[in-house]
Design a protein around this nucleic acid. Sequence first.
DNA 1: CGTAACATTGATCTGGATCAAGTGCCGTGG
DNA 2: CCACGGCACTTGATCCAGATCAATGTTACG
Lengths: 236, 236
Amino acid sequence: MLAATICADCAVRDKSLCGSLTNGELHALNTVGRRQTIRRGETLIWAGDENILCANLLSGVLKLVASTGDGREQIVGLVYPADFVGQPYRGQADFTVTALTDAEICVFPRAAFERVLTDHARMERLLLERTLAALNEARARMLSLAQTSARAKVAGFLVDMAARAGEGGCRGMPGGPVTFDLPLSRGQIADILGLTIETVSRQMTQLKAAGVIRLPGGRAITITDRDALSARTGAA
Amino acid sequence: MLAATICADCAVRDKSLCGSLTNGELHALNTVGRRQTIRRGETLIWAGDENILCANLLSGVLKLVASTGDGREQIVGLVYPADFVGQPYRGQADFTVTALTDAEICVFPRAAFERVLTDHARMERLLLERTLAALNEARARMLSLAQTSARAKVAGFLVDMAARAGEGGCRGMPGGPVTFDLPLSRGQIADILGLTIETVSRQMTQLKAAGVIRLPGGRAITITDRDALSARTGAA
DNA sequence: CGTAACATTGATCTGGATCAAGTGCCGTGG
DNA sequence: CCACGGCACTTGATCCAGATCAATGTTACG
């Protein structure tokens, strides 16, 4: 009862994996899961640790980080609300998961979550579809990391962020200027794109100088010329 | 009957996804699948085309290629015998799949394959596990593509290839020199590592000069000092 | 043999990293 | 209310790993 109540008021109820479950099934899931909040900067999972958790993200943004022996870092994925985090069927965590903003998650012990998966084929199917999609995205990013210029990376990143920001409340007419807040610092953008802070900053300034974007201050950004931005997505 | 016979003599019978099926189930699968050979250089799936195929690889090696608008290419994955190729639940192919060597595959129409998946939870589970593993590998590669030097990329690549070659018949004592044939040209190695042919070649020559490897000719390579090679896997 | 694809080697160029100051923006405390 | 200090960002100067351009060498194959 209480469990069902918790899920009923879940912000991502119908978009997350759990959306595939009936109320009765949810009840079962709730006996093994619990909500938890994590603060900006806190890390949920450390690469190399025993892999004990799976979770759904309710609000906020998390990053998946891989790092080399000498401390260089690469953000290999971002996790948005309703997304799933964790690696079922795997003994050891491969990547570090850290909160970029304050966040709220619904956590399950990995073993229990795996049992739920085997009992609920629909949910397993959904997870498979999501994993395939994530794989595609990761591969597309490999292309971008290895073969495109800094200019194209930054432009592509802004286009992606605009698209994601546009999903929610969209400010501005289609074709007209759009304004939104980047949820990431320059340093984090650099980690995603495989660049340095300085290079990201310089590319931003160039885009501003070219009249493609405006930087009103803080983390806000307004895209004034979407076509020009897309044009810079290609090589060169 | 015939169908069952075909599967019974399959080279990857117990390592592939199909290994999870009973003989009776295999029979059903065989009514929708067929064997096919493809020649070196031939491409099985074109990025952007309608996504109609899924397949298991029986022998040979395939590459998954992503390309930018201006023709630069990146190999985003390799497919080895017993591996699965294709994107269930997806209308359009995202990557081009081409044979690096002559190859033999067992092909299924995507729709039929999806039906088999829903009917056989064990198989769907196996595919999920493989997809999660592939995702991990892709993410690890993102780190390597974006954050490591040419030297480290080439050394890492050779270590990987040695490990894979070692799975089969292994020549040489543990710790001693190992010899095997690279299944890839310099150009293909470059495409995997996000480097140019020239850079790959130079790194190879350096390793040879340092006495870490020998290049007996053709595509053969012998690793004389595994530790020295691993040492170069890190940064710098 | 001859030729075409692949590989090595050399010379030069360049995009982005690295090193090094600034600059602006709060939050804190005097 | 304003001075201070910390932090994220911008901007500039320089450097260098790897790309690019250009031959030359090598292997495989009809």
